[in-house]
Design a protein around this nucleic acid. Structure first.
Lengths: 200, 200
DNA sequence: ATATTATTATAACGTACGTTAGGTATAGGA
DNA sequence: TCCTATACCTAACGTACGTTATAATAATAT
């Protein structure tokens, strides 16, 4: 047994690419099988149907990926941490990039159904809260924490979009520059590490 | 003759909604006809085929809409101008909002084909150049104009996304706040109008 | 060696799609 | 009044889709 269990993974890899390029409805089981080089019913051997294949990617793998990503955000140096996190997206594996991209697509309601959107919105709220909590201790009292947290999240979202969705490669200095533009002047002098590490 | 020429427009309105919700491949001519309340071949009476219907929306109407939008950006007060432009998206007609949303979807390569993407990328470059030229005279010499222009465009993109794609309603103060966060301290004292109009 | 289970394939089913053929009714111009 | 073009319809064609029935191989267990 288990002659070709990795066929299951190869099917999923091809599926992620097709869902990305052609959407759920534009993706055919036949074209996935064709790309993988297996027969059509093999998809049904490993997955109950088209929707279950899509769901495993978008409802399970995508959120697992996001959790893994979150762990890469070290606390301490705020600007440096976010810069590194975003910059690391440049060198994501091709599969992870497509997985991320498909997740964003569904998050924006550009694919999937109402059920998926619900999951995404629930998750998004927790992300905002955690970001706000992370930057709060680094702001001076006069700063509007909510505004800055929102603006930061908005900026991070577009940077992610540029790299993951549009496929561009952003240099670390630019990422740091844009993030600093928002956070720099509000940082407390006494951050745990690297009080003055930003480039002017 | 011309008993119901507005049927053509009603078909397009329904089409924009369906392309938004279900994508090009997920949209069926039958469902459009069903929504409009006409028979299926009426779509073919006004449009050569599905692709031509999609193209008229995405390749013609969307860019016409963008041109119209661009005219709403008054020069002079930079922060106020961008704030007003973005805030006006909240009260776009339902059709224009869907049209905008579909355009963004194609711009991000989430729908349409390579041909559409090409048009979008060409247009995007001209937009960046015009934004950079617009804010340049308002920056003090020490500021990195390119960085600020990029960051501003990124921020505007997410604000547009929140309103047009995610369907949220953003209050004017928040929009002005986020834009100010980037532009405020770099503005020259001697802008043509309203030297000190921002809220702290 | 044989029974059993895991992995693969061929061929087909029913359904829904994009599109068209062919026809009907209406309305203004001659 | 008849003609012609416009605005619409019902019905169908061919194709491609998601899915399954069925069967052949290959590996393992007994």
């Amino acid at each position: 047994m288990m002659k070709e269990e990795n066929l299951r993974m190869r099917i999923k890899e091809a599926a992620v690419e097709h869902f990305n390029r052609n959407g759920y409805h534009g993706t055919t089981i036949r074209s996935i099988a064709g790309d993988v080089g297996c027969s059509l019913p093999m998809i049904y051997y490993y997955y109950k149907n088209k929707k279950e294949l899509f769901d495993e990617i978008v409802k399970r793998d995508y959120f697992q990926f996001l959790s893994k990503q979150e762990l890469n955000l070290e606390s301490g140096d705020v600007i440096g941490g976010y810069t590194k996190l975003i910059h690391s997206l440049n060198s994501l594996s091709s599969y992870d990039k497509h997985l991320y991209r498909l997740g964003v697509k569904v998050y924006l309601s550009f694919d999937g159904d109402a059920e998926h959107i619900q999951d995404m919105d629930t998750y998004e709220e927790t992300v905002y809260v955690s970001h706000a909590a992370r930057i709060k201790p680094h702001l001076v009292g006069s700063a509007d924490c909510n505004l800055i947290a929102h603006t930061l999240m908005h900026l991070l979202d577009t940077l992610i979009m540029e790299i993951v969705v549009k496929g561009k490669t952003l240099p670390e200095e630019q990422i740091r520059g844009e993030i600093s533009l928002i956070l720099e002047r509000y940082q407390k002098r006494s951050s745990m590490t690297e009080q003055a590490s930003m480039a002017t």
